[in-house]
Simulated assay, not measured.
Amino acid sequence: MPKFVIANIDKVNSAQTFQPHRIGVDETPIDPNAELTYVAQVFFSAGDELDLYVPAEILNEARAKYVYFDLALYPFFAGVKNAVGDQEKSGVVRFRRTGLESKLVGDIYVLSKLFGKPSQTHVKIREIERKAHIIVLLKFGQSIMAHIEFTTGGNERLEFEYSSPQQIIEFDSDEMRPVLPTTKTKLPLMYTVDAITETAVEITDELKQELQAIEQLLGGVVI
């Protein structure tokens, strides 16, 4: 059965994707027997015999079967998961995202799967030089304090730090860009089609309730 992925094709690293796929689908019929993943910016009606994957921002797409979360797709975060492993988690998480679109709910959901259920949330919003700046203080599990920020505008950037008695893990996408000028390369913040289909989560009522609970923790001020 074919797969259909809705994604920002500018961020898809086709060269490092292993599964057979086609980027930029036009409205030609999709072969229901093809073992192929179609990737496009928008979805068009192509029959019922396919699995539709959507980003968390359009979770409620009527025909979607799976949803994927931006943060979980990046190679650096796979490395973080491997480094943290199943060890007892305690310490401090700092996560900062800069960009045009807030992904706070999805980011917190992904982090909670690694560090524990979120609680004790405090949200602050302020405007700095005409840019919205959101700060979320919360607790993951029993022993992780987290500081999460989102700032609108500017070039996309992710910063992550996990400090515990056992280790310190740091990542800054700006420091990982291989060439200059930094506005011309997105490699650290690109992902493969494989990452989308492998990390995607089936859309269930339970998942929707988890995400709604995170929205409620945030006071409904961000999406």
Rank of each mutant, 00 (worst) to 15 (best):
P20S: 09
L211P: 04
L189Y: 01
V193E: 04
V221I: 13
M1Y: 01
F44I: 07
D48M: 06
S163C: 06
T182R: 13
N155T: 03
V12W: 04
A213F: 10
Q142S: 15
E27P: 07
Y53T: 08
A7S: 13
G24L: 15
G79T: 08
V5L: 11
S45N: 12
V222A: 09
D10N: 14
I203A: 03
I58N: 12
D48V: 04
V136F: 02
M176Y: 03
E101I: 05
E149L: 06
P165V: 09
N82S: 15
D86T: 14
M1I: 05
Q120L: 15
R97I: 10
F160L: 08
E88I: 12
N33Q: 15
E215W: 06
T121P: 12
E215A: 12
R94N: 12
N60Q: 05
A46V: 09
K117C: 06
S119I: 04
T199S: 01
I214N: 00
Y191Q: 01
K139A: 06
V179T: 11
D174S: 04
D107S: 10
I6K: 11
Y68N: 14
N13I: 07
Q216I: 04
S163F: 10
E88K: 13
D10V: 06
Q142L: 08
E88V: 11
Y68W: 02
L104T: 02
I108H: 09
I135V: 12
I125G: 08
T199R: 00
E149M: 01
E61C: 03
L187A: 10
L137F: 04
L207Q: 01
P75F: 02
N8I: 03
E175I: 00
L59Y: 01
I196W: 04
S163R: 12
A62V: 09
P55L: 02
G85T: 08
V5P: 13
L73G: 08
L111F: 01
K208I: 03
L36T: 03
I169T: 08
E175Y: 07
I203G: 02
F76D: 09
T37N: 02
M176C: 02
F44T: 08
E61A: 00
V221A: 05
G220K: 06
R63S: 11
A195M: 04
S119W: 08
E149D: 12
P118R: 00
N8Q: 05
H133M: 11
H21V: 03
K184M: 13
E27T: 14
G85M: 03
E198N: 15
T185G: 07
T98S: 10
T152K: 01
G219N: 13
I128M: 10
T151I: 14
L217F: 03
V54C: 13
L111W: 05
F44R: 08
A62Q: 10
Y53S: 07
D51K: 07
G219V: 03
T192L: 05
G91V: 12
P188M: 09
G24D: 12
E101S: 09
G141M: 10
E27V: 09
R157A: 11
R63V: 01
L36F: 05
D174R: 12
T197V: 15
L218H: 13
D51H: 02
L138C: 11
T192A: 04
K89F: 10
P2N: 00
A34V: 00
P2M: 04
L218D: 14
I148G: 07
R94S: 15
Y38R: 00
I128A: 03
N33E: 12
T151H: 01
Y66D: 00
K11S: 08
I135C: 05
E61H: 11
